[in-house]
């Protein structure tokens, strides 16, 4: 397989992976966009989703696609609990408080998961057909992940544009005082947005297991948190739609740059892809802090 074929196949995988990355970041951007809180404990919620998919499949044989709905429900509940117990008291607090609090929440969830489920690395085998690409192959579960992620993003989009509640959220983002005057209960909108953001994150945890059904463990979220930060910034940090598109860009960037970096002798190209990713993050923050796709709000 020549260089170009490899590049092409990597880009295809990059798009598939990017769809999951995108959804995994939408929750982060939604929460920041509405509440101005960076959820540093992001990865822990994602991990809950991965475990949900694993347990539902292992115990009840539930297909991971169905688990997405369960995950959304679990995520909503978890989001409301977290909001009313902690986050509510931190609205408008300095970054120091919110960053630390969300980190603490994430840590607590991880340790609790370790206590309940143990430190084992788990996984499940959901057999799906695959498409052969000559020397490699794409399994259908990855395509399901892509489709599911697009559907969820689209439904969310419609919800924001068409429903009253969705419009209320947008109103709060645009003008908090104005919304209050119009009789919108701002705290409730915050609660809903936070819960929705967490639900999306938990659901994306399920999708991640569709992509990689192994290596599920209490500390798996950390890597995704870091990636989500980069992607969120690419997408403008405040916009879930921006984040969704940016996921694709990041997937392409990650996989594409691997092939190009492989041309440099005496380096570890895969490790360098992460260097490239974080450098991109810095450049965008400095040149265009509103994100690659412009300051598109929700």
């Amino acid at each position: 397989m020549g260089f170009w074929e490899q590049l092409a196949s990597n880009l295809v995988f990059g798009i598939l992976l990017g769809s999951v990355y995108g959804l995994a970041t939408m929750g982060l951007s939604l929460i920041f966009g509405v509440l101005r809180i960076v959820n540093v404990g992001h990865g822990a919620f994602l991990m809950i989703g991965a475990y949900a998919a694993f347990w539902l499949f292992t115990l009840f044989g539930l297909s991971p696609i169905a688990s997405i709905f369960m995950a959304l429900a679990v995520g909503l509940a978890l989001g409301f609990i977290t909001f009313y117990s902690v986050i509510k008291r931190l609205i408008g607090a300095p970054e120091l408080s919110t960053l630390l609090a969300t980190f603490g929440i994430g840590l607590f969830i991880e340790e609790l998961a370790k206590l309940v489920w143990g430190p084992d690395y788990r996984g499940y085998s959901w057999d799906t057909p695959y498409i052969s690409l000559g020397i490699s192959a794409i399994s259908f579960s990855k395509i399901y992940a892509l489709l599911a992620s697009i559907v969820i993003a689209f439904l969310l989009f419609m919800w924001f544009k068409k429903t009253k509640l969705g419009m209320a959220v947008r109103a709060v983002v645009e003008d908090k005082e104005g919304a209050m005057v119009c009789g919108i209960d701002v705290t409730r909108i915050y609660a809903l947005s936070f819960a929705l953001g967490i639900a999306l994150t938990v659901a994306s945890g399920v999708l991640i297991t569709l992509f990689v059904p192994v290596g599920i463990n209490p500390y798996m979220g950390g890597e995704y948190t870091l990636k989500a930060f980069v992607i969120a910034v690419l997408g403008g940090l405040t916009s879930p739609w921006g984040a969704f598109y940016a996921g694709f860009i990041f997937g392409l960037l990650e996989n594409g740059s691997y092939t190009l970096l492989g041309l440099i002798p005496d380096v570890e190209p895969f490790s360098l892809t992460r260097f490239i990713a974080f450098t991109t993050l810095l450049i965008i923050l400095l040149i265009k802090p509103t994100g690659l796709l412009g300051g598109e709000e929700m």
Partner: peptide, 19 residues
């Protein structure tokens, strides 16, 4: 070839290896 800690996807490096 190496991959960094906690990889989320190894397909690029694996397809290179397969070649």
């Amino acid at each position: 070839k190496t991959y960094p800690k906690n990889p989320t996807d190894l397909t690029p490096i694996l397809s290179e290896m397969a070649a």
